Measured scan of single mutants.
Amino acid sequence: LTVHVGNVTYHFDNPEQAEEWAKRMAKKYQGQIHVKDGQFRIE
């Protein structure tokens, strides 16, 4: 699973971990989480 934050990409084996990280990053950067094809993108 991949989480994109700006132009930085993080890889996770565990979906719960990826989702948790995406939520934390979205809160930190006050962005929206977009989920597409098993990838999380924070914008």
Results as ranks from 00 to 15, higher is better:
21 W>P: 00
22 A>V: 05
14 N>E: 10
32 Q>A: 08
31 G>K: 05
27 K>G: 07
35 V>I: 14
36 K>C: 13
10 Y>G: 00
22 A>Y: 04
40 F>L: 14
14 N>Q: 08
35 V>T: 05
7 N>L: 09
38 G>F: 04
41 R>H: 15
36 K>S: 12
25 M>I: 10
42 I>S: 04
14 N>L: 10
26 A>I: 04
40 F>I: 15
2 T>K: 09
17 Q>C: 14
24 R>Q: 13
11 H>S: 08
38 G>M: 02
5 V>H: 06
21 W>D: 00
27 K>F: 10
30 Q>M: 09
29 Y>M: 07
16 E>K: 13
31 G>W: 11
16 E>A: 13
11 H>M: 09
24 R>P: 00
7 N>C: 13
20 E>R: 12
14 N>M: 07
33 I>L: 11
37 D>P: 00
37 D>S: 01
30 Q>L: 06
18 A>D: 00
15 P>R: 14
19 E>I: 14
3 V>I: 05
33 I>M: 06
41 R>E: 10
33 I>K: 01
40 F>H: 04
8 V>D: 06
16 E>C: 14
1 L>S: 15
27 K>Q: 13
28 K>M: 06
7 N>Y: 10
12 F>M: 00
15 P>H: 12
16 E>Q: 11
29 Y>H: 08
8 V>K: 13
32 Q>S: 08
33 I>T: 04
26 A>L: 05
7 N>K: 11
10 Y>R: 05
20 E>S: 09
29 Y>S: 03
20 E>L: 10
12 F>D: 00
9 T>Y: 07
30 Q>R: 10
1 L>D: 04
17 Q>F: 08
4 H>F: 09
36 K>V: 15
32 Q>I: 14
6 G>L: 09
21 W>S: 00
42 I>F: 03
4 H>S: 13
28 K>D: 06
13 D>S: 13
12 F>L: 01
41 R>S: 09
24 R>S: 09
23 K>Y: 10
11 H>R: 09
31 G>T: 10
22 A>C: 06
24 R>D: 08
34 H>G: 03
9 T>I: 14
7 N>A: 10
22 A>E: 01
15 P>L: 14
35 V>W: 13
16 E>H: 14
41 R>M: 14
26 A>F: 05
21 W>H: 04
39 Q>R: 03
34 H>S: 14
32 Q>P: 03
29 Y>C: 09
19 E>H: 13
39 Q>D: 10
28 K>N: 03
1 L>F: 15
19 E>Y: 15
2 T>E: 09
35 V>R: 04
2 T>I: 09
42 I>E: 05
